[in-house]
């Protein structure tokens, strides 16, 4: 075993650990991140006033906070309907901030679900507001948090399309379709993007490949028509 020396000190009054002052912060960036995380958890544990925090079950989830957040979400959706997109974005962001500040020892599964709901809303609000890069970033996160939901890929694909990344948009739609082959909107968008791509390539993205027997059938049909 190798002994590692870490440049950290403990302050008993604030009950927090920190980097010693003689080291550069940029060099110990990763350690600093871990220290912050540890301090947050420790602070919550102290303020909980119990030896062991409650088990993170869905039952012990803070219902009061959930109701508050539901309200925030509702009002954001209302702003969306009134086409006040910047306001909606703000409200979704505030909701997400509240979500971040939930007690850390709560059920993460529930927290994550809540977070995803806000993320979906914000991605859509960004998109409608024309902030396609932000919309893409949110959708990209959605694609990794809720990968099996076709709509995540639909959102990402749409943002990619607006950003001009046609090939990426195509593969987004295709990936979405792999989770639900009959998704109407995705099929529509895929068709649309293929048209766009062939337009960008001078009508030639898919060079038409016809097999010989098919040509014969076509010719036969044409002859029948003439007769």
């Amino acid at each position: 075993m190798t002994d590692y020396y870490l440049p950290i000190t403990y302050d008993s009054t604030t009950k927090k650990i920190s980097l010693t002052e003689d080291v550069s912060k940029s060099e110990w960036k990763d350690l600093q991140l871990e220290i912050t995380q540890l301090n947050t958890l420790a602070a919550e544990l102290i303020s909980a006033n119990t030896d062991i925090p409650k088990a993170p079950t869905p039952q012990s989830y803070n219902k009061h906070l959930s109701a508050l957040m539901k309200k925030m979400h509702d009002s954001a959706v209302k702003s969306m309907k009134e086409k006040k997109y910047p306001e909606a974005i703000k409200q979704f962001s505030v909701g997400m901030e509240m979500n971040f500040r939930r007690p850390k020892f709560e059920s993460f599964q529930m927290t994550l679900q809540e977070f995803i709901i806000f993320l979906i809303g914000r991605s859509e609000a960004y998109y409608l507001n024309g902030d396609y890069i932000d919309s893409f970033n949110d959708a990209d996160l959605l694609c990794s948090l809720a990968a099996s939901v076709p709509e995540s890929h639909l959102r990402r694909g749409l943002s990619n399309f607006k950003l001009g990344n046609l090939i990426e948009a195509k593969s987004d739609f295709e990936r979405g379709l792999s989770f639900n082959q009959d998704h109407k909107k995705l099929k529509e968008e895929l068709e649309n993007i293929l048209k766009e791509i062939s337009k960008q390539n001078g009508e030639d993205y898919y060079i038409k490949v016809v097999y010989e027997d098919e040509v014969e059938i076509q010719e036969e049909k044409e002859e029948e028509k003439k007769n």
């Binding site: 030639d204 060079i207 490949v209 097999y211 010989e212 027997d213």
Partner: peptide, 16 residues
């Protein structure tokens, strides 16, 4: 796979 030049265009007929 078909390798083609960007200048080549149109409908090609292949024997299945």
């Amino acid at each position: 796979i078909l390798i083609k030049s960007p200048a080549q265009k149109g409908q090609i007929i292949l024997n299945k």
